[in-house]
Write a protein that binds this DNA or RNA. Structure first.
Lengths: 188, 188
DNA sequence: TTTAGATTACACAGACCTGTGTAATTGGGC
DNA sequence: GCCCAATTACACAGGTCTGTGTAATCTAAA
């Protein structure tokens, strides 16, 4: 056996590789030939699983769209924990910004479907913040949730160009101040 | 005379068009033929002024790099005014995120020179904030300047995907809270 | 062992891209 | 009127890209 034939779905194997390459090098920068070669399959097989590169891009973004999980930790801790996770992500070698923002940036304004999923992702995170803030009983959960979302995306964008995980700590500190101002006492 | 021959520098005319197309549609999405056609010149003329597309990209980003001007308005007003300008920018039809972040996103990690100018731009804005905060005598001008920069980039990224100028107002409100927390009293 | 479906190699069409070569043409300054 | 530099039209090389067509081969199940 010249090539290793593993069991997991071919579709999933393709998506894993597409994710890695699209995210690290850019959607426009990577051709389907490159993806097929990296998976170790023929281009024909790739096109047997995805009718077009656009379909592959959509599947890539869909796979990146993971709903934030629920936890029984204190809400304030969950909120600040978001920035701790960000910091760890920034420190890891493979971090290269928000895949949704990047996709919108490189695919242009005309691509409605990509923008749609990007908006849905941003909104889902904002709502996750809002629900936690509701549990904390703050005065304006909607507004504060938006502000926290800004800090998340700001630190991601800054880190994309600066490669400096300290951006996450700065965002966390700002979030702590915003929470305190809303009457939420935070330990860490 | 079939085509209109205006006086201003050909180089500048090319750059204006390249700016518009690169920014609105993406650097990778626009070819030099498209730019030359839009300017109304031959591709050969374009290459007589810029040795390569890369040089054109660099010139495009260099032209976007405008140092924030100095003003004699009160520092706190200048800081918050940044977000008012952002809001007006977001509301204008041609807004499509930060050209430097977008360029880093689509040109990939390997492009050192693009990343360099992007970092310089981000840092220049952060230093502009820091100097104003120094005038205000806050305790930690460096840290607070970073946090304000995060809010700026966060609102830009959010607006890129959401097309909602309210993101700038949210960032402004968050900035106001951060300033207040640092002992700066703000009217508006 | 037979069979059906997945996968392969490989060529190719058609489009687009960057960059160059070249000879003709324009237009402003002397 | 003449000259020189800029600009033009246009073809082309060489590369990349997406997507398809086809016939051979492999593999796992019946």
């Amino acid at each position: 056996m010249a090539s290793v034939q593993k069991k997991p779905d071919m579709k999933e194997r393709i998506l894993e590789t597409a994710d890695k390459l699209f995210y690290l090098q850019g959607i426009r920068a990577i051709g389907v030939d490159t993806i097929a070669a990296e998976v170790g399959i023929s281009k024909r097989t790739l096109y047997n699983h995805f009718p077009s590169k656009d379909a592959l891009i959509s599947a890539y973004l869909g796979r990146r769209f993971v709903q934030p999980g629920s936890s029984d930790k204190p809400p304030a801790e969950q909120i600040l924990g978001t920035f701790d996770r960000l910091e760890r992500g920034f420190a890891s070698k493979g971090f290269r910004g928000c895949p949704f923002v990047n996709a919108v940036a490189e695919l242009g304004a005309e691509d409605k479907s990509v923008k749609k999923i990007a908006v849905a992702f941003k909104e889902s995170r904002r709502l996750w913040f809002r629900d936690l803030l509701n549990q904390l009983g703050v005065a304006d959960p909607e507004g504060l949730a938006t502000q926290l979302a800004l800090l998340v995306d700001g630190s991601i964008a800054q880190n994309l160009v600066r490669d400096d995980p300290a951006m996450a700590r700065a965002a966390r500190e700002a979030a702590r101040v915003l929470l305190k101002n809303a009457g939420v006492t935070v330990s860490g």
